[in-house]
Amino acid sequence: MSDWPRILLIGYGNPGRLDDGLGPALSAKVDDASLKGVTVDSDYQLTVEDACDVSGHDIVIFADASVRGKAPFFIEEISPQSPMSISTHSVTPEAVLYFAEQMFNSKARAYVLGIRGYEFNRYEERLSEGAKRNLEEAFQFIRKFVQSGNLHFNEAGF
């Protein structure tokens, strides 16, 4: 058994809507890189059953496009939180963690990675130039973090 942390990256968003596809695009890049200990998933939006996957990991990174956040990206640690209501269009990362904790006793440490995008409101499957640059920076950040084998971004020197 290895002590290497088990990391789950869930990139979510709609690739058919320009920069909203940043999350799945990051998942695709990380998947191609075959990073040690990393499981990659992607979807249109978070769903309740993501809780099941979260429960088998030490670290979970929810990667999404950010409409107004800091460029090139921001990362924040989050904790489980019970919202008042759900729909399958609007399960938050905090709610997924809540489900994972309540139903599967998950103790995963979790982060939201928001990659800044710039164009969202058209039906087109491409990333803007600015989003592509931000995606690359986010990917390099994730790669270094994963290779550090640490469980905490701060402890890993990020």
Partner: peptide, 19 residues
């Protein structure tokens, strides 16, 4: 009256739904 109460009161049912 929400899913979180279902999880509390009937955890097995909630887990079945997810699985």
């Amino acid at each position: 009256r929400n899913i979180f109460e279902v999880i509390k009161k009937m955890p097995d049912l909630a887990v079945q739904g997810v699985m």
